[in-house]
Design a binder for these strands. Structure first.
Lengths: 241, 241
DNA sequence: CGTCTCCTTGATTGAAATCAACTTAGGTGG
DNA sequence: CCACCTAAGTTGATTTCAATCAAGGAGACG
């Protein structure tokens, strides 16, 4: 092994295990299809509930796109493993958000549980059949796709920011608005994961969060808990840098 | 910087049946969830042809999302004007590609003609009504949204590249595959526009293209014409940096 | 108590932004 | 046709910011 530690190499070994352990298709086929009490849409009766342990892969690049998901609890990361060894996290999804929608027959991205999470899993084929009969289903599908599009575009705008501080400020405000938890943010993900999402190094994430704290913009009671103290200035940083 | 007038609305009233549009191709051409409406689709009779002069705005941030478009000729840029004065171009669209699809009632982005261009314009309300009756229309809508999603995700991956050379190499290869013109690329856009798309400065774009030429990766007979000489090495740069 | 992982902080290096000067291409009118 | 003008593009010098390399600290856990 190398002297330099690769924080997600551990997760990579989990992938290998995950590929053999949870046989996505058979596993779910055996599972009884049950009603998702959290869902309110027309998909209500179509989902199966799945539990995924921390760090475990949900699907991998190259898999069939025969299933898609909705997060019931915790956080999921959607990532791409690049040839140069980097991992780019193109999205985090939290409770209520759907993911796993893809255009082609095979997946372009890998999905993994950031922490142990509960998902509702839909069989694409079933939903497509439903969409043929039920107009509300096809509208819901379009809605999901458009939400994903808006999120991806927002992420492009974030990555286009020239300064790391601006990206982190944007990320904090976005995360706050999505988690609906007031000024308090509970991070499920590590500094490394934040960095892989914002395309900056773990060290820079740490440095800038420290700087924000020194400037009185945030408070960090613990490494994974963060209070936004001055959203106005954070917003200015997000807008301007 | 640019004119604020919207002179194309007048042109809209002259309703002409949309002629056959070049079919979508390239990385978006996938099997599933795809409907090809190039000659028989219901969209064929629903579009109005519009001509937009160079640099002119097609729609602006804040406008109603009551129309969407397909490019018949030339190139369109979709951009966001940021508070710090920067312009981020989130996408270029070329012949055969559609744009202007947005989730909400009001636009998040501005569209402008890079060069004088011809568009086919669809009224969203009409298409939605058609989608209620015709399943192929609703599938086409979903298809458009998914294509936009895939493109936005690809752009996120591009912007996440840490080195400017990698972004430019990716951009060149993407542009080549979309323009279907062999190894020759004709740029409609300026260095500044490329920079605004890749989130790097105009000067760096110029420097790196010069470097590529010195390294024998490309040839530049003129500033807007570019020949890819070594796509293998360009591909490696796109992958690795 | 040691060990591991995650996080923080410091020192150095490297790449791109910025500032600035200069060149080229394209258009206009004499 | 040329002289001129302007916008676009190139190249160089300097500065700035974040990556990298390196070391140490904090918390979890057996």
């Amino acid at each position: 092994m190398r002297t330099k530690t690769n924080p997600w190499r551990a997760t990579l070994t989990l992938h290998a295990a995950a590929r053999t352990i949870p046989p996505t298709r058979g596993f779910l086929a055996r599972k009884s299809w049950q009603t998702d009490l959290r869902s309110t849409g027309p998909f209500q009766t179509a989902g199966a509930i799945v539990q995924i342990p921390e760090g475990r892969q949900i699907f991998a690049e190259g898999d069939d796109t025969d299933l898609f998901y909705k997060v019931a609890s915790s956080v999921v990361r959607i990532c791409k493993f690049l040839k140069d060894g980097r991992r780019q996290i193109i999205a985090f999804h939290m409770a209520g958000e759907s993911f796993g929608f893809e255009l082609g027959l095979y997946r372009q991205f890998t999905a993994e549980a950031v922490k142990e999470c509960t998902l509702v899993c839909y069989r694409r084929r079933n939903i497509e059949l439903m969409a043929q009969k039920d107009r509300t289903v096809s509208r819901q599908l379009l809605q999901y796709a458009m939400q994903g599009l808006a999120q991806a575009q927002a992420h492009s705008l974030l990555l286009a920011k020239p300064r790391a501080a601006g990206r982190i400020a944007s990320f904090l405000l976005d995360w706050q608005s999505r988690s609906n938890n007031g000024a308090v943010i509970q991070f499920a993900m590590s500094r490394q994961e934040i960095g892989d999402h914002l395309a900056i190094s773990m060290e820079t994430v740490s440095r800038i969060l420290s700087q924000f704290e020194r400037d009185g913009l945030i408070a960090m009671p613990s490494t994974r808990e963060l209070h936004l103290l001055n959203t106005r200035v954070l917003g200015e940083m997000a807008d301007c840098k």
